[in-house]
Amino acid sequence: MLAPFGFFYLVFLIGPLLYLLVAGFFNTSLVKGGLGEWVGLENYRRAMSTEEFWTSLWHSMWFTVLTTVPLVLLALVLALLTDRFSQGRWFFRLAFFAPFVLPSSVISLMFMWIFADQIGLAQSWAKSLGSETPPSWLGDPDWAMLSIAAATVWWTIGFNFVIYLAALQEIPRDVHEAAALDGAGPWQRIRHVVVPMLGRATTLVTVLQLVASLKVFDQIYMMTGGGPDRATEPALLYVYNTGFTEGRVGYASTVSLVLFVVILLISLVWFALLRRTEKEG
């Protein structure tokens, strides 16, 4: 039964990954056949000494911080609020989850209109709130990443929200009743009963969110192309630029592999930390 799956896994995942690992030691080129010449650790040395590599990695991390925190906290708050409705819960579930169904190209186009200079909604809102010269949301290096992060939060919050809502519904009513009988107020119940019981959901949500945010590409590629002044260029876009625009496949392979290891390490460390606190709890 495993054979068909194993075959595709080997051909489309393990195979390319091995090729990536090998190509990282060659000066493989997109415009030439074969692997090219062996360059040893040259690609790694070059990546480590290239400023753009580090800034793009930093942009990926910064984007992860900007999105993961609200995407977890806000999703939890929305789920807690929605859970209080006994009727019409389906409406909120649908409303918060709906944006998640949209393809990245659609939300990019929508937010490019919203964030547009002169004609965009975001600038006119800022003006009505009293800002005389609203920032160029996607055109100002200081604001572009924040704007993209805000769009991403709106777009993907539904997924975490649904997981939290499902976990909330798993908590038996008696636990709430027992806590209430013991004299715990609503806030205490959330703080000391509900949130600890959501531990496993939180682990799942944060790990998935970390991985998803660290490999951000689509919406940035479409909304700013990494600009202005490369202020929003994430690591994957750097891989794309060096690999496809410049045709330096060997070097791009090296960077992808480093990114792969970074994402793996961050996820593992985070996972281990959560596990330990859970056990201590």
């Binding site: 202005p228 630029n241 045709g247």
Partner: peptide, 22 residues
């Protein structure tokens, strides 16, 4: 090799020019 339509030369130098323009 790094110049031409949609190339790194356009992206990098264009970014500098946009920064000056701005």
């Amino acid at each position: 090799w790094y110049s031409g339509a949609g190339s790194s030369l356009h992206n990098r130098l264009g970014d500098v020019c946009a920064s000056v323009l701005g």
